[in-house]
Amino acid sequence: MTPFGRRVRELRAQRGITLAEMAQVLGVTPAYLSALEHGKRGRPTFTLIQGVIHVLGVIWDEADELVRLADLSHPRVTVDTAGLDAEATLFANRLAREIGDLSRIDFDALTAVLDQASRRDER
Rank of each mutant, 00 (worst) to 15 (best):
R12Y: 15
V67T: 01
R43H: 08
R43V: 01
V113C: 07
R6F: 09
A112K: 12
L95D: 08
H38P: 12
G42S: 02
M1G: 11
D80H: 01
A70E: 03
T29A: 00
R6V: 02
S73E: 00
L84W: 06
G51A: 08
T111F: 13
H54D: 15
L95V: 07
Y32G: 02
M1D: 09
E62Q: 14
I49L: 03
R119S: 10
E65V: 01
L110H: 11
T45E: 14
V67I: 07
R7Q: 13
V52N: 03
R43G: 06
E10F: 13
V28W: 08
A23V: 00
A23N: 04
E21L: 12
L110W: 10
T45G: 12
Y32S: 04
H54M: 07
F91I: 11
V79C: 01
A82E: 12
G16F: 12
F91V: 12
D85W: 03
R94P: 00
I59D: 11
D115H: 14
I105M: 14
R94F: 08
P44A: 01
E87H: 05
L95E: 04
D101Y: 15
V58Q: 01
D106W: 09
L33E: 01
W60M: 13
G42R: 06
R104F: 09
R94G: 07
Y32N: 14
R97L: 15
G16Q: 10
T78W: 05
D80V: 04
Q50G: 12
G57D: 00
P44G: 06
H54W: 12
A35E: 15
T78S: 11
G42L: 00
H74V: 00
A20C: 08
V113K: 12
L110V: 13
T45L: 03
L102Q: 10
L19S: 11
H54C: 07
E10H: 15
E21S: 13
L102I: 05
V77W: 06
Q116T: 15
A96P: 09
